[in-house]
Amino acid sequence: MVKVLLWGSLRAHTDGQAEVEVEASTFKEVLDKLAEAYPGLRPQIERGVSMAIDGRIYREAWFTRISPESEVVVMPYMTGG
């Protein structure tokens, strides 16, 4: 199981839970499992999210491996300059 921290407005779709667990080993599997377990997250996931894995931010890195020990944070897309 991977512990996933949810940032900001994403928590509203997990009954306010800041941390959830999913059975996954890649970036895409985490998102698929989150959308399955928490259908309210699906629209945001489809619009796009960023994921920080062990302190590095990824976007659409579908096959990036995630271990059960990884620190995983899902957030709305990070933008800016």
Rank of each mutant, 00 (worst) to 15 (best):
T14R: 05
A61E: 15
G16K: 10
M78P: 10
V30A: 07
R47S: 09
A12W: 12
E19D: 06
L10F: 10
I57S: 03
I57A: 02
W7R: 05
R42N: 10
P68F: 05
T14G: 01
G55H: 08
G81H: 11
R42W: 06
S25R: 15
L10T: 09
K28N: 12
G55N: 05
I53D: 07
L5H: 13
M78Q: 15
V49R: 00
G40I: 09
M1R: 04
F27C: 00
K3L: 14
E23S: 11
R56F: 14
P76Q: 00
G81E: 14
K33N: 14
E36Q: 14
L31Q: 06
G48M: 06
K33L: 07
D15E: 14
E69Q: 11
I66F: 09
W7F: 15
V73E: 13
D32V: 12
S50P: 10
T26Y: 08
T79L: 07
M1S: 14
A24E: 03
V49Y: 10
A35W: 00
K28V: 09
M51Q: 05
E69I: 02
E29A: 00
W62L: 08
A12D: 15
A35E: 03
D54L: 04
R65L: 01
L41I: 11
Q17P: 04
L6C: 10
V2G: 03
P39Y: 01
A37I: 09
G16E: 11
Y77Q: 13
K33C: 09
E46R: 09
E21Q: 04
D32F: 02
I45M: 03
I45V: 13
A12I: 13
S70Y: 08
T26S: 06
G8L: 06
P39W: 05
R65M: 05
G40V: 10
R59E: 15
Q17D: 08
D32I: 08
S70H: 01
P39M: 06
S25L: 03
V20K: 01
M78E: 14
E19F: 02
E36P: 07
G80Q: 01
F63N: 11
A52Y: 09
T26H: 06
I45E: 00
D32Q: 15
R56I: 15
S70Q: 03
S50H: 06
